[in-house]
Design a protein around this nucleic acid. Structure first.
Lengths: 148, 148
DNA sequence: TCTATATAGTTGACAAGGAAACTATATTTC
DNA sequence: GAAATATAGTTTCCTTGTCAACTATATAGA
């Protein structure tokens, strides 16, 4: 198995696992009226405290049109607040509401209850190595994508 | 970092990497008029020689409605042939056409040219370990999803 | 100070993907 | 053999995600 073949197998598996995980997350989150990307954006706003869309676009590597539409939805659901920026009239500050925090907590609980179980197929030591390897791959993939 | 925390980090990274890879693959394949899922279905038909939709649904873990629509598209593009089964009138046999084989080759080349580069951030030995770990995760995730 | 260019975000058009309901056929049960 | 149930695949409806074009505002350059 040469380098190229290994690369193809790893990438195939990463896409397959990623696809299954996303689909499962979408199912687990649908009772909250969100999908995985919408939740991750809400969660990022929660973590950031106060943030603008541009930053979310960059941090999550999503299309700005898509972020705009998700923001609209989250706002209409009452999960985030939007305050126009005084520095830049084109822009707004996003922050989570109390309702939004409740939803984030519920989502994390729903995901956590499912996620914890199946990963025990990997031993503890291997999990630490996996974290390291995935971090490496993640950042070099990011670089490769942004270089384009 | 306890087990639960490790699980969350690994899953977050797997989804993020999977998402980036899928998006990139979609970009690379769009000149062929396909996206990543459509290509993977075409590729599976290519590998199988002759196969029915039910098998594709199971093997790729896609919605049957979705497979049906992709089949329709691939057929209208002239990439696959469809022959009604004589055993079961509800079903058909799918196979790739010469044109389809050309497209598969072109797609593999396009993906291969990009995929090979960035994964070198992992050393050879680590790549083998990664293959093993991802295989474990993949099959236990599959089991977890199908158990539901 | 005015014009040209860049940027933050929005909207429309379109294709994709999921869920549910459907049709036609196969299998099981009585 | 007929009725009930299951199955293979299709279609409709709806939401999502991408792309391109747009508006309003900020910044750069002359």
């Amino acid at each position: 198995m040469d380098e190229k073949e290994q690369a193809q197998i790893i990438i195939g598996k990463l896409m397959n696992i990623g696809g299954m995980l996303q689909k499962k997350a979408n199912q687990l989150l649908s009772p909250f009226g969100l999908n995985q990307q919408q939740f991750s954006l809400l969660f990022e706003i929660f973590k950031a405290g106060r943030v603008n869309q541009k930053t979310m676009v960059n941090r999550l590597m999503l299309e700005k049109a898509h972020v705009s539409k998700i923001i609209k939805k989250l706002h209409s659901m009452g999960l985030i607040g939007i305050v126009p920026s005084t520095d830049d009239k084109r822009s707004s500050w996003l922050s989570i509401t109390e309702k939004g925090k409740d939803v984030v907590e519920g989502c994390r609980k729903a995901l956590g209850e499912w996620n914890g179980a199946w990963i025990t197929s990997l031993a503890g030591g291997e999990r630490m190595k996996m974290v390291d390897s995935l971090s490496l791959l993640q950042s070099s993939l990011r670089d490769a994508i942004q270089d384009k």
